[in-house]
């Protein structure tokens, strides 16, 4: 038996919004420790890794490890049927071929349940080692979304250059070029507005704007985003999900052929 309850549907809606542009389907691996989803986008250029910790759910029961392959488009449709302040309970029997989403209104007067067929997904699971990155940038997530949107007008790709002074985002194409420089915040009054750079070595990497823009769909989940970079390895774009866990996007850099 698997059962996980959240007092508020909003967070689950935001999580689905953050992944559904990149992934059509995904396997939710459920265990005692929580729920994990790892999947590559269709073109295998980026990887999404979602972790939700069991102790942050309002109720969590997982008698045996369970892998539930879900169509994320269908899941998003079902979650649209929940009001933001509804309690959401996700339920599945062991070895079941369906999962049930139950929504309960705050006054307990409306209860709805939606059953969804599970899928057998043959997805490659990747081991992601803990890595020390040359540069780690923390910045307001809205600012990052804005920069990705603005620079995508100029080019398919964006160069991110990080030094200890700051981080520079650049794009150039037929229309012209754009550069946005952010200096490290000198006086941190409000932590969520700060730009903080931890640098071991300066890094310059190029990435596809299309994917960066897809990652910024997670902006409503967290005020801050963390970008971790080292030469010639995937960028990690991380959004924390309050005390519930995090969503990390990995993106392969563009390299000279």
């Amino acid at each position: 038996m698997f059962e996980a309850r959240l007092m508020n549907a909003t967070i689950l809606k935001k999580i689905l919004d953050a992944v559904k542009d990149l992934l059509n389907e995904g396997t939710f691996d459920c265990s005692d420790s929580g729920i994990q989803l790892q999947a590559m986008d269709n073109s295998h250029v980026s990887l999404v890794s979602l972790t939700l910790r069991s102790d942050s759910f309002d109720k969590f029961r997982c008698d045996r490890n369970l892998s539930m392959g879900m169509n994320l488009g269908t899941m998003a449709k079902i979650l649209k049927c929940a009001n933001n302040d509804d309690t959401v309970t996700i339920k599945a029997q062991d070895n079941a071929d369906t999962v049930t989403f139950m929504f309960e209104s705050q006054n307990h007067e409306k209860v709805s349940d939606y059953e969804m067929k599970l899928m057998n997904l043959d997805q490659e699971h990747l081991g992601i080692p803990d890595t020390d990155y040359s540069c780690v940038v923390r910045m307001p997530s809205m600012e990052f979304a804005r920069i990705c949107r603005d620079l995508a007008q100029f080019s398919e790709s964006m160069v991110i250059c990080c030094t200890k002074e700051g981080v520079k985002f650049s794009a150039s194409g037929d229309l012209g070029s754009a550069n946005v420089k952010l200096a490290q915040t000198s006086n941190v009054d409000k932590e969520e507005e700060a730009v903080i750079i931890e640098m071991q070595e300066p890094v310059t990497l190029t990435f596809a704007c299309r994917y960066l823009n897809a990652f910024t769909k997670a902006t409503p989940l967290c005020n801050q985003v963390q970008l971790s970079m080292s030469a010639d390895v995937p960028l990690v774009v991380e959004y924390r999900i309050s005390d519930l866990g995090h969503i990390r996007y990995y993106l392969a850099p563009k390299i000279e052929e």
Partner: peptide, 14 residues
Amino acid sequence: IKNQKGINTYFTAG
């Protein structure tokens, strides 16, 4: 020309 490798080439299976 810049291109990108598959993300799975950076990580090990498992």
